[in-house]
Design a protein around this nucleic acid. Structure first.
Lengths: 201, 201
DNA sequence: TAGAGCATGTAATAGGTTACATGATTAG
DNA sequence: CTAATCATGTAACCTATTACATGCTCTA
């Protein structure tokens, strides 16, 4: 099997419980949202492939008023492929943070607009942090609810730490931008020596 | 202009100093590496596009023993397009962390292998953290070296906070995995109610 | 003498987003 | 009446990785 990770994310969810493509999107959004995201454009083709390879089975379930649903369940073949994938070392994703890229080059022309963007980011993430802490609490109180609880706590705490760090960084950066030197040194001694070169590398 | 970010990353670097595609790869790897990455398969086609749109100019520079280099410089048109892009709100990247995904589903069969993976991650990032702190120090000591220094410090500190959080998370997670309940509760009361559903959502 | 670094680039493939199409029900 | 939710899926793009091709020089 190739390394299409969407398929493994789906297999993983199906290993917990049978569900439809729509369910997967929704459930994954809630449980994995802060470190894994999928869109329908990937999910439905992936389910098709999984079915062809007999890693999953499909049953049509009718419902009144709503469209029919395709309920998928993992097979033994699927479970085997999933376990194999789980054993392999995790790949590291490419990092891309457009806001950082823009800040590196001097950010917005209007410093106040830049500050507002950072404040917004902080506020959004403060809400997210509160939610994650609630989820953490719930799992601590219901530690015996599911065999995977300790693992879920580990992933949640990744989110909590990462988001807390982001919030602190927003605060610090806003402070720095507020105390920016008014008259900025605009002449660079030697353009060849900018940034790293000048550190003697 | 479209929203091919590779082109803007290149324009940004060229706004600091003229350079070749090879230089860009190298310099970007050093200055932006912990939040932005590009491969040659994107860089060279992007330079071609930038040239066609006359956002950059190209001069061939010969050198003995080494292949010829194509030196690119940003034009006024390019600078204008770049400034326009800089003013727009930054897009948020899709999050994808394969290690977290695997941990969510129970991680490696062998808990010790999982612990080793986390320890490796921590060690790698401790080295990276030390490097970033050195760079931070250098910029603090040479605050007047370049007009963009405060901005560079902001991006570096993002890296420092993010990596510190990761390191702490690794430590905590290893501890949790070491104290995992031996006999794991393997029966789930009601599979429909796993994770979120059971929190009353 | 093997491998790394310098330096350019392309082609095949894989991965991912977005908009669209369909159409009923339910909540505001 | 409007918008959201339910639910499936496709097609047209765009984005990105990987392997390959070329060939010289310097270091171990």
């Amino acid at each position: 099997m190739e390394k299409n990770r969407t398929q493994f994310a789906i297999l993983g969810m199906l290993s917990l419980q049978p569900m439809s493509g729509y369910d997967f999107r929704k459930t994954a959004g809630q449980c994995l949202g802060y470190f894994w995201q999928e869109s329908y454009g990937q999910i439905y083709p992936a389910l098709k492939h999984l079915l062809e390879k007999r890693y999953v089975t499909r049953r049509r379930r009718r419902s009144k008023g709503k469209p029919d649903r395709h309920m998928y369940a993992i097979t033994d073949r699927g479970r085997k492929a999933f376990r194999e994938w789980m054993g392999q070392p995790a790949a590291v994703e490419k990092k891309r943070n457009e806001m950082l890229l823009k800040i590196f080059f001097g950010g917005k022309n209007d410093v106040n607009a830049q500050i507002r963007e950072l404040e917004n980011l902080r506020e959004t993430n403060e809400k997210l942090l509160a939610e994650l802490k609630d989820i953490d609490d719930w799992h601590v109180r219901n530690y015996d609810h599911h065999a995977l609880t300790p693992y879920w706590l580990i992933t949640i705490r990744f989110g909590i730490r990462r988001i807390s760090a982001l919030i602190e960084w927003c605060r610090e950066s806003v402070k720095m931008l507020r105390h920016l030197p008014r008259e900025v040194v605009s002449s660079v001694p030697d353009p060849i020596d900018f940034y790293f070169k000048s550190r003697g590398e």
